[in-house]
Each structure stands twice: as structure tokens, then as C-alpha cells.
Amino acid sequence: MTNKIVAIQGNHPSKLNPKTDTSVFLAHEIQNKNYKIFYYDPKELSVINSEVIASGFFIKFDYKDKNFFKIQKKQKLALTKCKFILIRQDPPFNLEYISTTYILDTIKDKVKILNNPTSIRNISEKLYSVRYQKFMPSTIFTQNISEIKNFFKTHKKVIIKPIHSYGGNDIHLLNRFNSKFINQFIKKHDHIMCQKFLPKISKGDKRVFLINGKVCGAISRVPKKGSFLSNMSKGAQPINVKLTKKENIISMLIAKDLKKENIYFAGIDFIDKKLNGDINVTSPTGLKTLFDLSGVNLAKTFWKNLDK
């Protein structure tokens, strides 16, 4: 019989902010159902004698305690003993990331893994949006400097960002074309995403939560003064928000597509009613913030079907 254990593959809890972190929020909810939480770093995942083993620790989360987590027992654990595994580390999408998905692929028929490791390997968080470009601002994916120059001539103000980064890192607003800077950026990141700048980002974006093929809620994140980055890790302030009819229709379409791809939980973003092209499938954030703003607990929704 499967133990009531949830393993979380993620960044060390000491690096997490309990006020906003979704991994802690999800863990705390299932912990209240008498599940044990086992935490491990992706680097600590191994295959030993054909068994998938992680070196980590059992942990307990407590929002009431200033030290919001307590490590109870360090050990190695065969992950097939778990009922669920949550893949919750921050990207970037690199070879270590890919290797962990291949390892977890070998046990996905024995343990429910969220999100499915094959699916998150196949769905690039930026490039997957190519199929939805009619809902997006003008966007290209390239490492061709001439294509970027032509795009800049057309749109004058352009956002560039790496395809495989996260959290608002390495995102730049170009007000003038700088060949040297762009060449260095391409050298570092290979293919990049270039997108027409939407000035209404100053009023905030909308983060939409998709769970099991359904649109479950949304928050807005307003960049701090002088910034165009809507990530809360970059100082943006969250506020309550409702989706427009058009945003809801687009969100439902993507939610159904992602369910077909075996993606259980995802986050997508809108700016000025346009999809911005980030399809977050590795470690979507914002559930704790939604709860604090509205009282809506999507952690309960997340576990509702899984825990039957």
C-alpha cells in the first residue's frame, strides 16, 4: 500500500518566502490531511540498482512559527514509496532539469507526478505559446540579429527575454537598437523571445491559474514605480482582479489544451487583454497570494481530485 507521503522536488525551503510561496502553500494543505512531506533538491536525485532514490529530509511547515519549517529527519527515500511527487524547482530549463525529467519518467506509472515529467520537458514555457500567437502582441523567437533589427524598426519599443529563464530575470526593454548588447545577449541565451512592448503593463498584468483543465482564478500584479516587470519577486504588488470575457475564453482554450498534454497545474499571463506568451508549467506561483487577497484556497482545489 502506498504511504501517505508527498515528495517535493524543489529549491531548499530556506530560499522560499512563506508569505507568497505556492510550494509551501500546497504542502501545508496536504500536510493537514495527515500526509508527510519529503523534500529534496534536484541534484540529489539518483538511480541506484534500478531504483529512483532521493537524498532529502522529511519536513513540517507551520505558518504560525517564525521559522516556518522544521526539518524532522534526513534520509534517502525510494520515491516509489510516495503517493505524489511535486516538481517545483525554479527553471531554468537546462540539462540538469532535463535529466531529472528522464529519471522521473521511469516511475511515473507508479507515482502520480505533478506536473508530468514528460510533459514539462516537451512544453517550453515560452515556445509553447507559438500556437497562440493570434492572442498575443507581435512576437518573434529567433537568434538572427537581422530579424531582431527588422522587428525593432517596426515596433520601436521591444521586450527581449531568454526562452529558458524565469521570474523576470534577464528581461530587457529596448528603446534603441544596440547591436553589441543584442549580440552578447544572443551569445549568452541562444534563441530569444522578442515582443512588442505594451505600455499598459504599468497598470499590471493578470496571472491566471489553470488546474486540471479548468480556469480557477486570477490575480493582478502591478509593477513598482519605474519598472515594467510584474513579477512579485521584482517588487510588483498583487491586487484582486476579474478576467474579461475574452481573457476567460482564451484561458479555457489553453487549459483544455494543457490537460490533453497531461499538465495538471499551470499559470498563464495577460497584459492589456493579450496573452504574454509565458506558459508556466514547472513551478507556477500565486496561490498563496490569491488566498490572502480573496480567501479562495486553490490548494484545496489542487488536492481535491488527487486525494480521492
Rank of each mutant, 00 (worst) to 15 (best):
M1V: 10
M1Q: 12
N3I: 05
K4H: 03
K4D: 09
V6E: 04
A7M: 03
Q9F: 08
N11Q: 10
N11S: 10
H12F: 11
P13C: 06
K15Q: 14
N17Y: 04
F25M: 06
F25C: 01
A27S: 13
N34D: 15
Y35H: 08
I37H: 07
Y39D: 09
Y40A: 03
P42Q: 09
E44T: 11
V47G: 05
I48M: 14
N49D: 15
N49T: 09
F57Q: 14
F57V: 08
D62W: 10
N67C: 07
K70Q: 14
K73C: 12
K73V: 00
K74W: 11
K74H: 13
L79W: 09
L79Q: 06
K83F: 03
K83W: 00
F84W: 07
I85F: 05
I85Q: 05
R88Y: 05
Q89P: 00
P92C: 14
E96H: 11
S99G: 04
T100G: 04
Y102K: 15
Y102D: 13
L104Q: 06
D105T: 13
K108D: 13
K108H: 10
K108E: 15
K110Y: 12
V111G: 02
K112G: 00
I113N: 04
I113K: 08
L114P: 02
T118W: 07
I120T: 07
N122E: 15
I123M: 08
L127P: 03
R131H: 06
K134Y: 07
M136V: 04
M136A: 04
S138N: 15
I140P: 01
F141D: 05
T142M: 04
I145L: 15
E147T: 02
E147S: 08
E147N: 13
I148H: 04
K149S: 11
K156E: 11
K157C: 01
V158D: 07
H164Y: 15
L174I: 02
L174M: 02
N175M: 07
N175H: 12
F177A: 03
F181G: 00
F185D: 04
F185W: 05
H189L: 04
Q195T: 06
K196F: 01
K196A: 12
K196R: 13
F197E: 06
F197C: 04
P199L: 01
I201H: 02
I201G: 06
S202W: 00
S202N: 07
G204E: 10
R207L: 08
V208L: 05
F209G: 03
K214I: 03
C216I: 09
C216R: 14
C216N: 15
G217Q: 07
I219M: 05
I219S: 09
P223D: 06
P223W: 09
S230H: 06
N231V: 13
S233Q: 14
K234T: 03
G235W: 11
A236S: 11
A236L: 08
Q237M: 13
P238C: 11
K242A: 13
M252Q: 15
I254G: 05
A255S: 15
A255K: 08
L258V: 11
K259R: 13
K260A: 14
K260I: 14
I263C: 01
Y264G: 02
F265H: 04
D269E: 13
D269A: 01
L275I: 06
L275T: 07
I279W: 09
N280M: 14
P284Q: 11
L290H: 00
F291T: 00
F291E: 13
G295Y: 12
L298P: 05
N305I: 01
L306M: 04
